[in-house]
């Protein structure tokens, strides 16, 4: 999604002279057209994430719509207090865009993993959290989301892979069924749809966590999330029978590929299919 993000920004910069892009010395080559066309509003600010978030708040205070882009642990965890106070508490329209998701940089190890990002960002009141599962999700919703309130957008290396353009920012019904509900979040939609092919459950797709809809009306609910397991259920404070499938809580100490991590963490299609079959007694 990274290349598509910068392509989208080229279109947005042409329309919005209040957009400012701030890079933490990452994505500089991919953003080369923006550097060329908007040298006064595109900055490679350096590897100093804490000051960068405060600086972005200062730009927002002057009426700009700053977007800070970096790898998730540096964009979120390194500067969480700055995000909480300077962006969140001051209610400034700063957008933070992360790449790397939970373990997209699998080979680089724990320092570059960030399965806690959504839990941390949703701990900040009024922070909008957007988890696009595809480039078309991002292109469809992002232009209307930034510039009003604090916003966090989590980009993944791999999208859900489906040819699906969402109608709503959340709760698109992807499949009908009777034994319960599966909530697929962001890029987990692809594996969920594969896993549920022969399971009699309803599948809904969401890219934001702002509302839990009417999911408590379903007897049994499974949530398949691309970050720490249980994050969404805790945020929604769901009563009843909920089963969360996500990244297990604990340090990821291995390297290799994302697929190897998916297998080791029981997040492959087959692992998820087995877990959902057992949960729904199907």
């Amino acid at each position: 999604m990274r290349a598509a993000f910068f392509k989208m920004l080229e279109d947005l910069f042409a329309k919005d002279d209040r957009l400012v892009l701030i890079l933490g010395d990452l994505g500089v080559y991919t953003a080369r057209n923006l550097f060329r066309d908007y040298p006064d509003r595109v900055f490679n600010i350096g590897i100093c994430e804490q000051a960068t978030i405060s600086l972005a708040a200062g730009l927002a205070k002057e009426g700009f719509h700053p977007i800070f882009y970096s790898i998730a642990p540096f964009a979120v965890e390194r500067c969480l207090e700055q995000i909480k106070v300077d962006v969140g508490y001051q209610r400034l329209p700063v957008t933070i865009v992360s790449v790397g998701a939970s373990y997209d940089y699998a080979a680089l190890g724990c320092t570059h993993h960030c399965p806690a990002d959504v839990e941390l960002m949703t701990s900040i009141p009024d922070m909008q959290v957007f988890i696009p599962g595809s480039e078309s999700d991002m292109e469809r919703f992002f232009p209307d989301m930034y510039g009003y309130m604090p916003l966090y957008m989590r980009l993944s290396e791999k999208g859900h892979g489906l040819d699906f353009k969402p109608e709503h920012a959340s709760f698109d019904v992807m499949k009908e069924g009777s034994r319960g509900l599966v909530v697929a979040i962001g890029n987990m939609l692809g594996v969920v749809m594969d896993a549920c092919k022969d399971i009699d459950v309803e599948v809904v797709y969401i890219t934001g966590l702002g509302t839990k809809g009417h999911i408590e009306n379903y007897g049994r609910v499974a949530i398949v999330e691309p970050y720490y397991e249980g994050t969404t259920a805790r945020l929604w404070n769901i009563d009843g029978d909920v089963y969360s499938i996500g990244v297990p809580r604990g340090f990821l100490t291995e390297y290799g590929t994302t697929e190897e991590h998916d297998n080791a963490l029981a997040l492959s299609t087959e692992h998820i299919r087995v877990q959902l079959k057992l949960f729904f007694n199907d």
Partner: peptide, 15 residues
């Protein structure tokens, strides 16, 4: 926090 925010404000004024 305030000082780096001031840097952002100064940059915004410059733009």
């Amino acid at each position: 926090h305030g000082f780096p925010m001031a840097v952002g404000i100064a940059l915004g004024l410059r733009i």
